[in-house]
Each structure stands twice: as structure tokens, then as C-alpha cells.
Simulated scan of single mutants.
Amino acid sequence: MRRMKALAVSGAALVAVAAAGPARAGGAPEADLVYHGSAVMYGKRVEVRLTPRNEGPARVPGASVRLRWSVPLADRQTLPARCVRADQRTVVCGTGPLDADGLGEQIALGVTLRSKASETTLELDTVWSGGTVDRDRTNDRTRVLILDTGDDYSF
């Protein structure tokens, strides 16, 4: 009887660990976040579309991606519901949940620059990963030069 209880408890613990996903030595599940998309600039307007991807191995309950421009944004912005203005050059957007080896919902936002510029640099990076650990931070940090040409710049 004692042996059965021990096996049941061990089995329950194994199920709990498996449900949380693979973990590193410190106990936090690991995930690898990546962002791909495009940006276009025309006049004082910059349109960005990006799709978050979790290359696993664990599921991410939600993450936040920071988008920072090299030039100040206009004071008034109309942003999607899951995005918020952080400072004069920065917007932070929630990704929603990301399954392991899965794509998240596309984030589409447009911002207006404070003044017309011939170019701006957009930097993207993860600022929160829902309690998961990302050992490879090189692929969730991106810098894109966007020229005022009306052309799409992919990242």
C-alpha cells in the first residue's frame, strides 16, 4: 500500500513537471522567442507588423515585446489594445500565449513620428517572457533601419 502511494505521488509530480514543460537546472521552463515581420515608413508614419514565434521547448503563457524608435514619437498615438506607450520613443506590446514550436498572433501597429525624418531605426526585444527563461537572447533582439521610401523592410 505504501509503495502504491509513493508511485502515485511520483507519477503526479512527473505529470506536473511535464505539463510545465522542459526546465533548466534552476527550475524555470525554457523557451526561445523570435520576432519576424516588416516595417514601412512614409512621411511621419511608420507601420509595423510582427509575428512572435516560440521555438520551445516550453509553452509561454504570455510575453511582452518592446519596440523602440530612434526618433521621438508624436504625443498622441492610437495603439492596438495589447500595446501601451512606455516613453517618448517606446511602445510595449503583449504577445498573448505562445505554444512551444508555434506562432503567436500577428501584432500590427502604426505610430506617428513627432516630426518627419528621412529614416528611423526600430529596435525590438523581449522585456518579459512569462516566467520562462530564454538562453539565446540573440534572436529576440532585432534592429531595423527604416527609410522614408514607402518600401517594406523585413526582419
Rank of each mutant, 00 (worst) to 15 (best):
R137S: 00
L7F: 13
K44M: 08
A86P: 04
G110R: 08
K44H: 08
C83W: 13
P29T: 10
L7A: 14
D75C: 01
D140A: 10
V9A: 14
G11R: 06
H36A: 06
W69A: 07
D140T: 11
D32A: 00
Y153I: 00
F155R: 01
P80G: 05
G110N: 00
G96E: 06
D101I: 10
T149R: 00
A39N: 07
D101C: 10
A28S: 15
E119L: 06
R143G: 11
A58M: 06
A12R: 13
A20E: 02
A100W: 08
A63H: 00
E123L: 07
T132Y: 06
A18W: 14
D75S: 11
A19Q: 05
V127L: 03
V48Y: 00
L79Y: 05
V111M: 01
I107W: 11
A86T: 04
R3K: 14
G37S: 08
S129V: 07
L103N: 13
E30N: 06
R82K: 01
T90C: 05
L145I: 03
P29C: 03
S10D: 15
D152A: 01
V111K: 01
A58E: 05
Q88I: 11
G110W: 01
G96S: 07
S115E: 04
A25H: 07
A6M: 08
L103H: 13
D140G: 12
A20C: 03
P97K: 01
A12Q: 09
V40P: 03
D125F: 08
E123R: 13
G43R: 03
S129R: 05
D32V: 02
G37N: 08
S118G: 12
R114Q: 14
V111P: 02
G94C: 07
R2M: 11
S10F: 14
P57A: 14
V144T: 15
T149P: 00
T120F: 01
A13P: 05
L124V: 02
P97S: 05
L79T: 09
S154F: 10
A16R: 06
A25S: 09
P72S: 08
T95K: 09
L147T: 02
D87Q: 06
R2V: 14
A58R: 04
T78M: 12
P29M: 08
D75T: 11
E30Q: 06
W128H: 14
